[in-house]
Write a protein that binds this DNA or RNA. Sequence first.
DNA 1: TATCATCGTTTAAAAAAATAAACAATAATC
DNA 2: GATTATTGTTTATTTTTTTAAACGATGATA
Lengths: 198, 198
Amino acid sequence: MSNVDEYSTDNLTNAELGFDLGTRLRSVREQYGLSQRELARRAGVTNGTISLIEQNKNSPSVASLKKVLDGIPLSLSEFFTLDLPSQDQIFFKAHELLALAKGAISLRQVGRNLRHRKLQILHERYAPGADTGTLMLQHDGEEGGIVLRGRIEIVVGGQNRVLEAGDAYYFDSRQPHRFRNVHDQECELISVCTPPSF
Amino acid sequence: MSNVDEYSTDNLTNAELGFDLGTRLRSVREQYGLSQRELARRAGVTNGTISLIEQNKNSPSVASLKKVLDGIPLSLSEFFTLDLPSQDQIFFKAHELLALAKGAISLRQVGRNLRHRKLQILHERYAPGADTGTLMLQHDGEEGGIVLRGRIEIVVGGQNRVLEAGDAYYFDSRQPHRFRNVHDQECELISVCTPPSF
DNA sequence: TATCATCGTTTAAAAAAATAAACAATAATC
DNA sequence: GATTATTGTTTATTTTTTTAAACGATGATA
């Protein structure tokens, strides 16, 4: 049994791991609204284990850390990857949407760095006559949307339709597709893609 | 001392971790052209430790795994993140959206069978005072949306905000969350989830 | 083919982590 | 205000991991 110096609080991880594993686990747990006991129950370990880990008083085995994270749930990869879900911006004022394009077509995106996001959400506006170009778009993923205002012609594969306010669409993005405002008023819609394509 | 059954070769990690930690370490080590002893020397552990880990005969503590990986060198994040290596309906008229809920909260979905779709797109309406219930929602995936009309209070993790028309949100759905219309007018928004959660 | 170096594996003893139960502090309920 | 639950922490014991050293196997060299 090692005689732990009573003055050393976080005796190991900070120095040896290069980051504060205990604090990271604690903040993740609190963020998900779990008590030590509740997480322990879900993970199949004791609450003491979690307490000791969070205080950096022991360094969990990979097996037990995995069990703990399963209770959240969070993968080992996610846990050790710096960008925890918390660090991302959650709320966006209208003026904070990222303008990807302006002019005949305005594209305003929810969130900036899409590296670690699974969804690209866009607020799109098409001026009368505007279109996505003569070339058909094609890329991996799936996409869909709902029209808020105006009319838009959408061509997908061989099919084409004019959608109005309230109408919607959904297709595999590998099918060649194209958007065009064939009306004399502006068209507005919300679109979604996965994974982000640009 | 536990009496390890002589027939069980990989007694723990495959089942408990969901991946073969020992084999992963071994392949990384060999990829870098290091013997167990050489890696042990660089890492400051004994060769026996590495041998046992690679055979999945013990589950290293995070601290010692970190020491081992430092000898390669490879970060914990990198180690756990290593690459392990239809003809559906496209267009939907407004009345064709699938009503998942009506009443104080109206949910109208783009597309019917979500089995083979990666996105769930919803047109949501919240009556004044309506909310998603006292229990916080929690499920796998990510979600986001844009407010079209009215105001809505959104609670995510510890944070809460009131969003208005044009504002948006995006978060990891495993964080406990809740929506509530705290205004005296109806609130309308477009939301997206991945993967579909119901 | 004998010798030497190096390899991965195994084993008893030492060290560290996980458990189970008790403890103290705070919040909730009657 | 007293009681009850629930929170995070701590401690003795059990379990697991790590060490240190020995073992057997392979390959190179003289």
